[in-house]
Amino acid sequence: MTDKQRDIWKNRIAVFFAWVAALLFFFPIFWMVLTGFKTENQAIAIPPLLFFEPTLENFTEINERTNYSKFALNSIITSFGGTLLALLIAIPSAYAMAFNPGRWTKDILMWMLSTKMLPAVGVLMPIYFLAQNSGLYDTKAVLVIIYAMINLPIVMLILFNYFREIPKEILEASRMDGTSTFNEIRQVVMPLAWGGIASTALLSIILCWNEAFWSIVLTTTDASTLTAFVASFQAPEGLFWAKVSAVSTLACAPIVVFGWLAQKQLVQGMTFGAVK
């Protein structure tokens, strides 16, 4: 074998193992989706069924037997609400910091990121009492507020990095024309930063949607999100594998797609900007 042939074979072996890894990692998701299309008996059949006549019964029955749409709506409201609130707070601040950095800007940003590193369980009791005493326990509002606060540091950082990439000359030109700051943000900065804001929102929605600690601790029935709803199937009597799989498939599908779209922001956001 020549060196070239050897390289080709090495490459083929690497590609083979890459696919093996991809199939192994994806398999549990594939199996979950597949089980969602089985009947309950097929779902627990031994040996497990790979080929069967698919049924849509689980997806149609979810709403009759459970309050799926209520929980889905709660998830949508809390993750979009939390994201929107975080953006509203973060956009002006990140804008000011990016275009007028001061002596403390870096320290402020670092401090903000450090609040994200506080373990939730460390403030479990205070948040629990504050929610109870303010009447916000088991409401969507409390989750919106908490999701906004826990994602604010990451949203700030990514927006800051986006705003910094906007050339300052454009702003100076518009300032010469006598544009007010509000109009400057609205007419000049926003159109340029729009893509960045949208993908930041996408990342924030993913993180809110999959948040499990606060939604389990702070809700009982009214405001439970899909993560808490799925957790309620943990009991042994909840052995409806096909239905749980159908619920899980519906709950995860949109976010997995969002995740594929927001890979770049995810890398930046999850590493606090340390890897771009």
Partner: peptide, 24 residues
């Protein structure tokens, strides 16, 4: 292959826990 490899990260933790606990 890339998309398949990173997908598990986007599955909500309660779902992945249930999939592993029950079906696997």
């Amino acid at each position: 292959a890339r998309v398949m490899l990173i997908s598990p990260f986007f599955i909500m933790p309660t779902v992945s826990a249930l999939v592993w606990k029950n079906m696997l």
